[in-house]
Write a protein that binds this DNA or RNA. Structure first.
Length: 288
DNA sequence: TGCCCCCTGCAG
DNA sequence: CTGCAGGGGGCA
């Protein structure tokens, strides 16, 4: 589920909460969700929490826990209930708006820290994973080294966007935007949103884009990602931040999941098509 | 460059 | 019941 904004929100929140804590115990409930030897980090202290593309990294001494949430992964932090009052989501049964008690049936890995707080890795569909790698090996790891530039970096300009996308000239723009080797962190929601802001039909081939369209697309990418972070991310089904709170970006999204609803710009009903086997939303009047 | 697949669960 | 879901690796 989570794309760049959602993972970034988790990073921001988690960083404040777990930096400095000691990993006391790692309980693996689903073997496939955790790759590596957990004993290599138990007893060590958390130094840093970082993000690259849609991946989250937790550094301890010499080792990195690398997380990928894929479609349904969640990272949920709970303070020690004997020290701090329970968060609202600890209260009850899971609903659309509330996460419910931890752990639940989707919990795959549980980290326990020295102060009694816990971190739950939940993943209904089991596509996500945690990999334990040495910190020196992580940057050179294939998963990281093959990634394209981060779209929110200042150095990510329309020239860079153009040169990256043009590595796939005969591909539809929206499909190219999803390619993590070209640009990292954009997923299905923000690819659709970026195309809308840029006024570009998602089916348009990269080779047919004009310089000015790359400039608009750059704005569309940065705007939609930043706006989502501001609104707490997109919570369609699974996404909750590390404190169990939903995000509200989809309530202000222009096209994603708005099939048949009026375009916010021209009132034309938003259309849904399949592109590269992914659901794709756009306004047939505003996007050419 | 385009499918199939990894899984589970929810909506239609 | 079928189809669909914030991802992306592997394979032809």
């Amino acid at each position: 589920m989570p794309e760049l904004p959602e993972v970034e929100i988790i990073r921001l929140g988690l960083s404040k909460k777990i930096t400095g804590l000691t990993i006391k115990k790692i309980e693996i409930l689903n073997q496939k969700s955790f790759q590596g030897d957990p004993s290599k980090v138990t007893g060590s202290k958390i130094i840093k929490v970082w993000r690259r593309a849609k991946m989250l990294g937790i550094d301890s001494t010499g080792m990195t826990l690398l997380f990928h949430l894929k479609m349904s992964g969640q990272i949920i932090f709970t303070p020690n209930p004997r020290i701090l009052s329970p968060k609202p989501f600890l209260g009850g049964h899971p609903t659309k708006d509330m996460l419910g008690e931890m752990p639940n049936k989707s919990t795959r890995v549980i980290f326990e820290f020295g102060d009694g707080s816990k971190l739950y890795f939940n993943d209904q569909r089991k596509f996500g994973w945690i990999r334990l790698v040495t910190s020196t090996e992580v940057t050179s790891h294939k998963l990281i080294s093959s990634l394209g530039p981060e779209p929110l970096e200042k150095t990510f300009t329309s020239e860079l966007l153009e040169s990256q996308l043009k590595r796939r000239k005969n591909t539809a723009v929206k499909v190219a935007l999803l390619d993590q080797q070209l640009i990292s962190g954009i997923g299905n929601i923000y690819a659709c949103e970026a195309c809308f802001i840029a006024g570009i039909n998602p089916q348009k081939l990269v080779k047919d884009l004009k310089t000015q369209e790359f400039q608009k697309l750059l704005i569309g990418i940065k705007e939609s990602l930043l706006k989502s972070i501001k609104y707490g991310g997109s919570s369609k089904q699974h996404y909750f931040n590390e404190s169990g709170e939903k995000g509200y970006f989809l309530e202000v999204a222009n096209v994603y999941a708005r099939k048949g609803e009026p375009c916010r710009n021209c009132q034309t009903p938003i259309v849904k098509i399949k592109l590269g086997s992914r659901g794709t939303y756009y306004c047939p009047k505003c996007q050419h």
